[in-house]
Design a protein around this nucleic acid. Structure first.
Lengths: 234, 234
DNA sequence: CTCCATGCGTCGAGTTCTCGACAGTCTTTG
DNA sequence: CAAAGACTGTCGAGAACTCGACGCATGGAG
């Protein structure tokens, strides 16, 4: 239950000054989040904040049709539910665990108390919110303008940055949902990238072979979002 | 320069308690924003906040290709640049005036001072940010999943809510940019809606004939975003 | 009034993606 | 081992949208 004694891979927590971190530390605990776990659905009261050390959490917008499409992702550069540190919040989206995560967990109650006392934490929350908003509006444009292949590549790159491996566990069906397209389209695109030697895949596993080439296939949105985070959360 | 003597159509300002409003009022001034005016571009330091009384301001994400696609809109239910009340901010998007607006204008310096003193204003800013984020993630999904016709209808409805007229001045070319599609596609969709008696248009002007039918053509995203604003900014 | 810039109509080839269907293959489980 | 379930491969018809091109109408400026 004491996060300060281990390496803090979460960059948000790592950037907090010592005294501010001391307000949070007694209430943090490390949890392992297994793949596929549902953390909240739209309308749920947010009562816990997660700071991932690794792995990916997806924010998904639910549609009436039952479709659930990814609208943003959270990794070690951010936190899930952080806006609720400011005051009570209902979730706007579904949050599910994309890849197995180790994350620091804290109750909204405790982080709100720290938020009231710590200007540094308030500032961090604000900048995180801004970065997440930037992420979202870039995705609005990306989904309107860019091909499935470019978005597929962008998704792999974003995921690759957040796990310490060239191997990503994911099925094509799952990725099709994330991107909001048909599975057959994902199959076709994946085959194309494999033929070019950029990725290799089999049943539920994708290996990234040539990351540099993947960046060439991806749209600019990958870099834009990444730079937004770096500017706002150095 | 005294906004308190006239009807406050901007719902954000109208919801502020009297004492909190008194902190802002001396620094507010009404401005007329003409159609097409550029208020900021990505990277610009935000130095002014606008609270529209009517009309629409569009937030547009700029791409390397030169495309500028709409990622959110601001009307009388919100404000432009409000996140900067919390602290210095760079714009993430282009903001342009979509339809002629009357808006209250205040410098970031002055609204930040009020923000420091007024818990009600701080709360308002936070809820506005949350609503705008909800708007953005809904648009992420909408652009991935919904047809141009549905998004066209959604756009008209959103605009219609914010101007006190059934007549909207806009060219098809302009709307094509907003939606991130070809003009010829907009022409085809507009013709379809006119044939059905839902809208009528000519050179740069669209009349909404049957709003109820337009809601049927639109996707659910119109209502979802609207309800998000109503919940967070009553 | 004439010119001319702007905005709309249309056409057609081509690409991307959808949607449903079914077959094949791998993995897990009983 | 056998059965069931999960994942990928493929196919084909069709819808949606792109992209470039060109012509026509409208309305404002000189």
């Amino acid at each position: 239950m004491d996060g300060t004694l281990q390496a803090l891979q979460n960059r948000l927590l790592a950037s907090l000054p010592r005294d501010d971190m001391a307000l949070l530390a007694p209430h943090l605990s490390v949890v392992n989040l297994e793949r596929g776990r549902l953390l909240h659905d739209p309308g749920d009261k947010i009562d816990t904040v997660y700071f991932p050390h690794d792995g990916v959490i997806s924010l998904m917008t639910l549609m009436e049709s039952g479709a659930a499409i990814e609208s943003a992702t959270i990794g070690c550069e951010g936190a899930l539910g952080l806006m609720a540190a400011v005051g009570p919040r209902q979730a706007l989206s579904r949050a599910i665990v994309q890849t197995p995560c180790k994350a620091e967990r804290i109750s909204v109650h405790h982080i709100h108390e720290a938020w009231e006392r710590s200007p540094a934490l308030r500032d961090l929350v604000d900048r995180h919110t801004e970065a997440l908003f930037g992420h979202a509006i870039q995705s609005v444009a990306c989904n309107a303008l860019h091909s499935v292949e470019a978005r597929f590549a962008r998704w792999l790159l974003t995921c690759h940055d957040r796990i310490s491996s060239d191997r990503i566990a994911l099925t094509q069906e799952f990725l099709a949902d994330m991107l909001g397209v048909q599975r057959t389209t994902v199959t076709a695109v994946a085959r194309g990238l494999q033929t070019k030697g950029i990725i290799r895949y089999r049943r539920g596993v994708v290996d990234i072979i040539d990351r540099h080439a993947l960046e060439g296939v991806s749209c600019e949105c990958y870099g834009v979002v990444r730079r937004t985070y770096e500017r706002l959360l150095p």
